[in-house]
Amino acid sequence: MDDQLEPEALDKLRAELRRGVIVLAVMAQLRTEHYGYSLRKTLADAGIAVEEGTLYPLIRRLEKQGLLDSQWRVEANRKKRFYRLSGAGQSALATLGREWTALNAGVEKLLDPSE
């Protein structure tokens, strides 16, 4: 009997785990203004690499929900869309941040083999 999980099944689990975390990471990063590529780069530098096909639809969805404000501006001779957390987004981030801290502490405890 093989104890190893199929790579595809593991990918699915990883994707599920990352889904909510990415939303929180994106919102946290957008406390300061970013355009798409700079946001993706900052997240990647922080160890959270997000594909374009995941990030752009996500920020559009967050904007539609009123959590982000956006603005087209020209920078370095290129038109870019800049995003920033809205008032509603800041209050949602504060709530989600508290929940994350509590969840993280709980999961850390559960993962600790000495517990």
């Binding site: 355009y35 798409g36 590529y37 993706r40 374009e52 752009y56 559009r60 290129r78 038109k79 869309r81």
Partner: peptide, 17 residues
């Protein structure tokens, strides 16, 4: 209705890369 915005943003990302 979203095509122009999405394509412009993707183009910018690809150009940056």
């Amino acid at each position: 209705d979203q095509r122009s915005d999405i394509i412009r943003e993707l183009r910018d990302d690809i150009t940056e890369q």
